[in-house]
């Protein structure tokens, strides 16, 4: 066949493309291309185990086991987290994050002689315990682990059972540092 192009470079390209056109089938190329496209897109549909890509699977939760919504998500092992079971009505900074414990004051502060007493459900045995929310007073606000539990919390016109107010009545200082949650007893 007589080449159309006269230039050397154009002639080279022309002969290459004519060669390719004579040696390969266009329909064959299309069918191969289609095959790969379908294969690639249908591969993820195959029933292979993909748990690794699923990320952290939420642990099967007992659905609404307790009347208290807080207790349904509570734990009994880490007093530095808001969902520790005793904090169902704790409003403030956790003493456990401030150098104290769930029911001990950090050094330099003193426990208020007054507290307000609420009740929380322990998620492990499902029983209700009375908890004394006692503020530690005498140092500026701790500022760590702010938590807001509201079980049994009443508006401040019922101040005996309101957790928004500072419970340092009777302490040597009215300056609030953190909130503790002491076990008072087992409810009947």
């Amino acid at each position: 066949m007589k080449p159309i192009c006269s230039g050397r470079f154009d002639g080279l390209i022309e002969s290459l493309s004519r060669g390719a056109a004579q040696l390969t089938s266009r329909r064959g190329f299309l069918s191969q291309c289609g095959l790969w496209l379908v294969a690639a897109s249908s591969l993820p549909l195959l029933p292979v185990a993909r748990r690794a890509q699923a990320g952290e699977r939420p642990v099967a939760k007992p659905a609404r086991k307790f009347a208290s919504e807080f207790a349904n998500h509570a734990q009994t092992n880490d007093p530095t987290r808001c969902n520790y079971w005793r904090y169902c009505a704790s409003d403030g900074y956790l003493c456990a994050c401030c150098g104290g414990g769930p029911h001990t004051c950090p050094p330099g502060t003193s426990p208020s002689p007054t507290s307000w007493i609420g009740s929380c459900i322990n998620p492990d045995d499902g029983r209700t315990y009375l908890i004394a929310y006692r503020d530690c007073c005498g140092q500026d606000s701790c500022g760590r682990c702010a938590c807001l539990g509201q079980e049994g919390d009443m508006p401040s016109y019922r101040p005996q059972v309101n957790n928004d107010i500072v419970w340092c009545f009777g302490a040597s200082s009215m300056v609030y540092h953190c909130s503790s949650a002491g076990l008072v007893g087992l409810a009947e």
Partner: peptide
């Protein structure tokens, strides 16, 4: 009491009588 602070101590609590609970939740604070 199943709690990190009390599990090992073996602390046992008897249920409080109802009147003691009423006192605890209304007066004791």
């Amino acid at each position: 009491v199943p709690d990190i602070e009390t599990r090992r101590s073996g602390l046992q609590l008897a249920p409080m009588p109802r009147t003691a609970q009423l006192y605890a939740t209304n007066c004791q604070g």
